[in-house]
C-alpha cells in the first residue's frame, strides 16, 4: 500500500466469478499520518473508501478483460467501524450485487485480523479507456498485484 500514490492494493488473493479478495498492508510510515493524526496515526476513511473502490475496480477489470475502465460514481452506506493504523494487514473483499448496462454495483468490505474495519456499497461506471496510457498502466498494475490472467 502506497498511500501517496493511491496504490491501495498489494495483492489479489482470488478472483472468482463475481467476487474478489485482495490484501494490503498499511505502511509503517507515510506523510498522510503526519496530519491524520499527530500522535494518533490513522488511515483516513476516504482512503478506506478508495481501497474498496479499487478492489471493486480490479474485480470489474478482471471480469471485462480490460475492455472498459471502471470509474467511481457513488458510495453509499459507507461505514467505518474500527480504527486502522500503521502496519495493519488489510483484507478487502468486493462482490458484484448488480450488473447493469454500463455500470456495476458492488458490496465491499475491509477487515483486519478478523475485525471489521469498513464497508460500503459502491457504484462504478464503465467507459472506454480515455487514453491508451491508462490502459497500459492498469495492465502493468494488474501484473504487479497478480490479477489472475495478468501475472507478471
Amino acid at each position: 500500500m502506497r498511500l501517496e500514490y493511491f496504490q491501495m492494493i498489494d495483492r489479489v488473493v482470488s478472483l472468482e466469478g463475481d467476487a474478489i479478495v485482495v490484501e494490503s498492508r498499511v505502511p509503517q510510515e507515510s506523510p498522510v499520518f503526519e496530519g491524520h493524526f499527530p500522535g494518533h496515526p490513522l488511515v483516513p476513511g476516504v482512503l478506506l473508501v478508495e481501497t474498496m473502490a479499487q478492489a471493486s475496480g480490479w474485480l470489474i477489470l478482471g471480469r471485462n478483460g480490460f475492455a472498459q475502465m471502471p470509474f467511481l460514481m457513488s458510495v453509499k452506506e459507507a461505514k467505518f467501524r474500527n480504527f486502522v493504523g500503521p502496519d495493519a494487514p488489510l483484507d478487502v473483499t468486493a462482490k458484484v450485487t448488480h450488473d447493469g448496462s454500463g455500470y456495476t454495483v458492488t458490496e465491499a468490505r475491509v477487515s483486519s485480523a478478523g475485525k471489521r474495519i469498513a464497508d460500503a456499497e459502491i457504484l462504478l461506471r464503465s467507459m472506454p479507456f480515455p487514453h491508451p496510457d491508462l490502459q497500459a498502466a492498469m495492465r502493468a498494475n494488474a501484473a504487479r498485484i497478480g490479477l489472475p490472467g495478468h501475472a507478471a
Binding site: 460514481m73 457513488s74 450488473d99 447493469g100 448496462s101 457504484l123 461506471r125
Partner: peptide
C-alpha cells in the same frame, strides 16, 4: 440517471440496456 437506472433495474427485475 445511473442511480435511477439502478433503481429501475431493481424495481422491475430487468437490465435497462442504456448502452445499447
Amino acid at each position: 440517471f445511473l442511480d435511477i437506472v439502478f433503481a429501475i433495474d431493481k424495481a422491475f427485475g430487468i437490465k435497462v440496456p442504456v448502452e445499447k
